[in-house]
Amino acid sequence: MSESNGATATAVPVTARKDWSSDQEVRWCPGCGDYSILAAVQMLMPELGVRRENTVFLSGIGCAARFPYYMNTYGMHSIHGRAPAIATGLATTRPDLDVWVISGDGDALSIGGNHLIHALRRNVRLNILMFNNQIYGLTKGQYSPTSEVAKVTKSTPFGSVDTPFNPVSLALGAEATFVARTHDMDRAHMQETFRRAHQHNGAAFVEVLQNCNVFNDGAFEKITSRDARASMLIPLQHGQPIVFGAEGSERGVIQRADGSLEIVSVADVGLDALLVHDEARDDPGLAFALSRLAHGPYEPTPIGVFRAVERPEYGTQMSEQITDAQAKRGLGDVAALLRSGSSWTVD
């Protein structure tokens, strides 16, 4: 193993986007939101001060899952839903690596739901980017676990009767220590969010609202289009009152006496009455309430970091148990191990 790879002693080479792009032709549908996410990531990597050889992109199945092929790093395109599990084995045995998990709403929340929630609760050092397009793209347009009720697709010709998941609420409920949301129309916001995820020492979950222009075009248009953004996206900023909207018609979030949240006009209540965002709160209750503000991508929707708290990282603790055992018992001796019960000798 190259845990103490000699090369890491030298300075990180200066790189540019092209160094992080593989020679593979990108094969998403023209106009797919995945392109802008890929660009945001490829452009961000040179800024993170990391090495290509210590970076791994891992994915499951779906349109988003093709992502690793386009990154000039180590990578694995695995099987449907299992990427968080595979990444857990990799990240825990190789703490020297940066492991990114690229997933979609079907991959992460349907077939891989179990692996996602457990990776989050364990707090494995992973950057999990979940591209949410509220549809199955690769299999050509069935409804997904984030599709809205009554959605008509090939597999729901009479409308879906499934209540969708809210990915941010789900992650918060799964004890995630870092939960954020961004969208494919805003490169700067994506990069800032991914940067924060990368800095986080633990499992970082980022929902990326992504347009599938072939099977679910415009799913987020009401909130992410250039014209709508100002009045429909609520940027969360740590330590700042939660406020959004164009100048003159600002709105903000207040907390009612019963603890629930409400969107009000700032002019009516004054800036001081607004809820101040605290991503570091130990209690995830407020972050959860924020995640419930919008009932779908047609109401004002918070974006940014909902929650970022410190909790011991899984792989680190796993390694510590080994170091402790070795300090107490010495490096294991196989010959002694075999004699750990009673042994007897025949002469």
Binding site: M1, S2, N5, Y74, G75, M76
Partner: peptide, 15 residues
Amino acid sequence: APPGLPGLEHRIGGL
């Protein structure tokens, strides 16, 4: 080729 060596970056998958 486990990750960690420059110049050996590669992608593998189930396809």
